[in-house]
Computed example of a mutant assay.
Amino acid sequence: MNQINPKKLHVQWENNARLHIPPNTRKYTLIHSDDTGDLYLYIGSSFAFKHLHPMRDEVLAEWKRVKQTLILFLYVYVGNKNSGKETNEQRKQAFQKKLPLALEAIRHGDQQLFQAYPFLDFSPILVHFTSEYPDLNVTEDYGSPYLYK
Rank of each mutant, 00 (worst) to 15 (best):
residue 140 E to Y: 02
residue 72 L to C: 12
residue 106 I to S: 02
residue 92 K to V: 00
residue 129 F to L: 05
residue 137 N to V: 02
residue 116 A to H: 14
residue 84 G to W: 08
residue 77 Y to D: 11
residue 98 K to R: 15
residue 143 G to E: 05
residue 143 G to L: 03
residue 136 L to E: 11
residue 80 N to D: 15
residue 118 P to F: 07
residue 121 D to F: 06
residue 112 Q to S: 13
residue 134 P to L: 06
residue 71 I to N: 03
residue 95 F to H: 11
residue 141 D to Y: 15
residue 140 E to L: 15
residue 72 L to H: 02
residue 68 Q to T: 13
residue 78 V to P: 02
residue 124 P to D: 14
residue 119 F to V: 06
residue 76 V to E: 05
residue 93 Q to D: 09
residue 68 Q to W: 07
residue 145 P to D: 05
residue 77 Y to H: 12
residue 84 G to M: 08
residue 75 Y to M: 08
residue 96 Q to Y: 03
residue 136 L to I: 05
residue 140 E to H: 05
residue 147 L to I: 00
residue 126 L to R: 07
residue 132 E to F: 06
residue 146 Y to N: 11
residue 95 F to E: 05
residue 112 Q to N: 12
residue 126 L to W: 10
residue 145 P to A: 11
residue 128 H to V: 00
residue 108 H to W: 11
residue 113 L to N: 01
residue 90 Q to M: 11
residue 69 T to V: 15
residue 109 G to E: 07
residue 71 I to P: 00
residue 107 R to A: 13
residue 100 P to H: 07
residue 94 A to N: 12
residue 97 K to C: 02
residue 69 T to H: 11
residue 112 Q to M: 13
residue 90 Q to H: 12
residue 69 T to I: 13
residue 112 Q to V: 04
residue 106 I to D: 07
residue 121 D to S: 10
residue 144 S to H: 13
residue 142 Y to V: 00
residue 111 Q to W: 05
residue 81 K to E: 13
residue 86 E to N: 12
residue 142 Y to N: 04
residue 96 Q to G: 04
residue 147 L to E: 10
residue 146 Y to T: 02
residue 107 R to Q: 12
residue 111 Q to M: 07
residue 106 I to C: 09
residue 83 S to N: 06
residue 128 H to N: 11
residue 138 V to E: 08
residue 73 F to A: 05
residue 89 E to N: 08
residue 70 L to D: 09
residue 120 L to I: 10
residue 71 I to R: 06
residue 101 L to P: 08
residue 93 Q to N: 13
residue 139 T to K: 07
residue 115 Q to C: 01
residue 94 A to K: 12
residue 90 Q to I: 12
residue 97 K to A: 11
residue 78 V to Y: 01
residue 96 Q to V: 05
residue 91 R to P: 03
residue 131 S to P: 06
residue 95 F to Q: 04
residue 128 H to M: 08
residue 145 P to C: 08
residue 132 E to C: 06
residue 81 K to V: 03
residue 148 Y to P: 01
residue 143 G to N: 04
residue 102 A to V: 00
residue 134 P to F: 01
residue 134 P to S: 11
residue 70 L to C: 07
residue 116 A to G: 03
residue 127 V to H: 01
residue 110 D to P: 06
residue 135 D to G: 02
residue 145 P to S: 10
residue 127 V to S: 10
residue 69 T to S: 13
residue 126 L to M: 09
residue 91 R to K: 15
residue 131 S to A: 15
residue 114 F to W: 14
residue 145 P to L: 15
residue 77 Y to A: 02
residue 83 S to G: 08
residue 82 N to P: 00
residue 72 L to I: 07
residue 117 Y to L: 08
residue 67 K to L: 11
residue 85 K to E: 13
residue 106 I to R: 03
residue 124 P to Y: 09
residue 96 Q to A: 14
residue 79 G to V: 02
residue 132 E to G: 06
residue 142 Y to E: 04
residue 143 G to K: 02
residue 100 P to L: 07
residue 119 F to P: 00
residue 95 F to W: 09
residue 73 F to E: 13
residue 113 L to C: 08
residue 136 L to Q: 14
residue 120 L to R: 08
residue 85 K to R: 15
residue 67 K to C: 02
residue 122 F to Y: 14
residue 90 Q to T: 12
residue 141 D to I: 05
residue 69 T to K: 15
residue 96 Q to W: 00
residue 79 G to C: 06
residue 78 V to L: 02
